Simulated assay, not measured.
Amino acid sequence: MYRCPVCAEALSANSAGLACVNRHQFDRAREGYVNLLPVQQKNSKVPGDSAEMMQSRRLFLNAGHYQPLSDAVNQLLASVHPATLLDLGSGEGYYSNRLQQALPETAVYGLDIAKTAVRYAAKAYPAVQYCVASAWHLPFADQSFDAVLKLCAPCEPQELARVCKDGAALLAISAAPQHLVELKQQVYPDVRLHSDAIPQLEGFSHQQRQQLSYQLQQVPVAELLALLEMTPLSWKFKPGQKQKFAETNPSISLDFYLDLYLKKQKQ
């Protein structure tokens, strides 16, 4: 499944981890993941979400607030019966772990550029195969996957199409117009809602759109603060404003689009 991120040759397992014919070696960490992010593909010294953002996301997700979204993802991807599945931008592993539980016969792979998140995911969920890598340079062989979950993760569509089999399913999750609108109202005088346009992804044809909307109510202050910290809106709040807002016990709108695509068949 894996290919070398340096020379694109196939990677084979050895006693230490993975290696290619050109002797590029990638050791397996004690937590079980492999780091396939060469230095030239890093965009910063510590790429990806910080440890603080990962911990906030873990607290919020493990409280079950996004379980309806995870359940909808599992149901849609189960309908295509994938043998191999990639969670692109898998973070601390919440969605990939629940996918593995829902689809026990599927080989689930998780990829994220944040080493801290992947380390936690691999230790907590050993049934999923995790790697540290760039979504723009996927370390997988051509036509490796029957399905891909892309949950708010940026990527290169051509590279994504390369690792998908013909006819593979791509489930892309994005924010629908009302998503977190109450948070936006705290920091923007004129709130701009998320677009309802269906993204066109090169190499894929759009099949269907499902919208999932619900309200979070009576959220404990610590969990609401975690939600704030795991969003880019966190930087917009003034000192002390987050705590005051969380203590008002607000209702929060969650609004998602689930867009299902199929990889186009080669002519």
Results as ranks from 00 to 15, higher is better:
80 V>L: 06
95 Y>M: 13
94 Y>W: 14
64 G>D: 12
73 V>E: 04
58 R>M: 13
111 L>S: 04
155 C>S: 15
148 V>E: 04
72 A>N: 08
119 R>S: 13
106 T>H: 02
62 N>Q: 15
92 E>A: 06
150 K>E: 14
85 L>W: 01
147 A>G: 11
77 L>S: 01
136 W>F: 14
103 L>A: 07
64 G>V: 12
80 V>K: 05
149 L>F: 07
144 S>H: 04
152 C>H: 14
124 A>D: 08
84 T>C: 07
151 L>N: 11
87 D>G: 06
117 A>F: 00
70 S>D: 07
91 G>T: 07
88 L>K: 02
104 P>V: 12
150 K>F: 10
65 H>A: 13
67 Q>N: 15
146 D>W: 07
122 A>D: 00
96 S>E: 02
159 E>L: 09
85 L>H: 00
91 G>S: 07
122 A>P: 00
91 G>C: 11
59 L>D: 09
98 R>T: 08
97 N>A: 15
60 F>G: 04
98 R>E: 15
66 Y>L: 15
77 L>Q: 03
76 L>F: 08
152 C>V: 09
102 A>Q: 12
62 N>T: 11
131 C>V: 06
86 L>K: 04
62 N>V: 07
62 N>P: 02
100 Q>S: 12
133 A>S: 14
141 A>N: 14
127 A>C: 08
95 Y>T: 11
77 L>Y: 02
143 Q>P: 01
133 A>W: 01
154 P>A: 15
100 Q>R: 13
75 Q>S: 06
69 L>H: 06
153 A>S: 12
84 T>H: 13
83 A>T: 11
80 V>F: 10
102 A>M: 12
73 V>S: 05
135 A>D: 02
90 S>E: 05
148 V>T: 08
137 H>P: 08
119 R>F: 01
83 A>R: 15
148 V>H: 08
157 P>V: 11
128 V>H: 00
149 L>A: 02
132 V>C: 04
130 Y>S: 05
133 A>H: 00
115 K>S: 11
133 A>M: 09
110 G>M: 01
113 I>K: 03
109 Y>F: 15
153 A>H: 09
63 A>R: 06
125 Y>V: 01
139 P>E: 05
100 Q>F: 01
68 P>C: 10
144 S>T: 15
96 S>Y: 03
77 L>P: 03
132 V>P: 02
109 Y>Q: 05
63 A>N: 11
144 S>W: 00
155 C>V: 11
109 Y>W: 15
123 K>Y: 08
151 L>E: 01
109 Y>K: 06
94 Y>V: 09
121 A>L: 07
130 Y>L: 06
100 Q>Y: 04
122 A>C: 12
134 S>C: 12
141 A>C: 11
107 A>C: 13
160 L>R: 00
94 Y>L: 09
128 V>L: 05
82 P>D: 02
98 R>W: 00
158 Q>E: 14
160 L>H: 03
129 Q>A: 09
121 A>W: 02
87 D>F: 01
160 L>A: 07
69 L>S: 12
97 N>F: 00
150 K>N: 15
57 R>P: 08
105 E>F: 01
